[in-house]
Structures are given as structure tokens and as C-alpha cells.
């Protein structure tokens, strides 16, 4: 047993890195192709989706391809805090102006990730993210990065996640053991089934 604190920390980091690599491989195997667009859904607000999306971005990060994290939770945005960015400009401003998405994107210095912040808080994302707009903004974002990972509002609060999941390569259901209730997960599954969407897999979000 290793008792050196720095070695233990290094071991823990290697363990996390291994888990992320395994997760990425599992996702790509489950969707039978490179997952260019990934949507992380949560049944309710028990899952810290900002952290989960951030770590998912780290899992997919490579030196040769860019990964974009997009925050569609305009009621409770969180990705910009992890990336140490301003809340605006972000997704809302870009959708409002229908301009080039690059103007709203920001790159994180240390992690090599592109981040599209929500752009606002306490607003209903359905005003901007709907069946009409998804036809142009999803392809536009895909043109900006090799891979786009969406953070979505909880499914019991907004159907935006379902909307985005419809055009995604991989749909992941995030569950936080000990915090997420089975009844909420079942409800989320029913919502997805009604929309004809089958989640690619489940991801455990643990502290």
C-alpha cells in the first residue's frame, strides 16, 4: 500500500484518467461510430451536470481534435463557472443574433476545451432552442468543433434535452447514486420513449 501523499494523488489521477478513457471507449462502442455530438441528460436536478459535462469533455479531449462544451441550461447555467468564463456572450446571444457561433465561443486556457456558455440565467431555453432553430444551430456548432457535448436542463424541468437528443450521436443518461430516485429515472425514460429516443447508455456521476 502506497503511503506517500503525492504518490497517492498521482495514483488517484491515473485512476480517474483510466476511467475517462474507458468511458469514452464504452460510449463509442455503444453508438457504433465516433460520437460527434453527445447529449448528457439528467432526470432531475440531483445530478451536477456541469461537472459531469466538463469531465466528459476531458474524456473526449485529444490533441488533434477540438471538443466543444455547450451549456443549454439557461435557467441554471454552470459550465462557464468551471471554465472561469463570463456568462455572456453565449448560446442565447448567438441564437438571438443568428450570427456566427465562433463569436460566442471561448477557449479554456488550461484544458484545451471550447466552451459555449448559456449566455443568460433564469430564462426559459425553449424560447431559443426549439424545433425550428435546431435545424440550423446544431449543424453550425458541429462546424466549429470535431465534437460537441451538450449540457441540458433536467428532464423534469425542460424538454430541451429531448430536443437535442433527437439529433445527437450519443445520448447519455446521468444518474447520481444515492441522490437520483428510481421514479425520476423511470419518468425520464418514459419521456425519451415518447419521443422515440433510446439513450445510448447510463453514466454514473459520483462525488
Amino acid at each position: 500500500m502506497n503511503t506517500n501523499p503525492s504518490s497517492r494523488q498521482q495514483d488517484a489521477q491515473e485512476q480517474v484518467a483510466h476511467e475517462l478513457r474507458a468511458l469514452r471507449a464504452s460510449i463509442e462502442l455503444a453508438c457504433h461510430k465516433p460520437a460527434r455530438s453527445v447529449v448528457l441528460l439528467s432526470p432531475d436536478n440531483s445530478v451536477p451536470t456541469a461537472d459531469a459535462v466538463w469531465n466528459l469533455g476531458l474524456a473526449f479531449r485529444t490533441d488533434t481534435s477540438s471538443t466543444l462544451l455547450a451549456d443549454s441550461d439557461m435557467e441554471d447555467p454552470g459550465l462557464h463557472l468551471l471554465a472561469d468564463l463570463d456568462l455572456a456572450p453565449g448560446l442565447r446571444q448567438w441564437l438571438e443574433q443568428k450570427g456566427q457561433p465562433a463569436s460566442a465561443l471561448a477557449a479554456t486556457h488550461d484544458h484545451g476545451l471550447l466552451v459555449l456558455a448559456a449566455g443568460c440565467s433564469n430564462e426559459d431555453p425553449l424560447q431559443w432552442l426549439n424545433t425550428e432553430s435546431i435545424g440550423w444551430f446544431a449543424p453550425a456548432l458541429m462546424a466549429c468543433a470535431e465534437r460537441v457535448i451538450w449540457r441540458t436542463p433536467p428532464l423534469d424541468q425542460s424538454p430541451v434535452g429531448v430536443l437535442l437528443a433527437g439529433s445527437a450521436d450519443a445520448v447519455l443518461m446521468a444518474v447520481r447514486p444515492g441522490h437520483t430516485r428510481r421514479s425520476r429515472v423511470n419518468r425520464a425514460q418514459r419521456i425519451l420513449a415518447q419521443a422515440g429516443i433510446m439513450a445510448t447508455g447510463t453514466v454514473l456521476v459520483e462525488s
Binding site: 476511467e19 475517462l20 468511458l23 460510449i27 447508455g201 453514466v203 454514473l204
Partner: peptide, 14 residues
């Protein structure tokens, strides 16, 4: 048992 999809892995929250 609760979800039909497999558990693909885990992510840590910071």
C-alpha cells in the same frame, strides 16, 4: 435494473 441501457462508466463531480 432501473434503466434498460447499460452503465457505460462513471464521471466524478468536482
Amino acid at each position: 435494473k432501473s434503466v434498460p441501457q447499460p452503465v457505460l462508466g462513471r464521471l466524478r463531480s468536482n
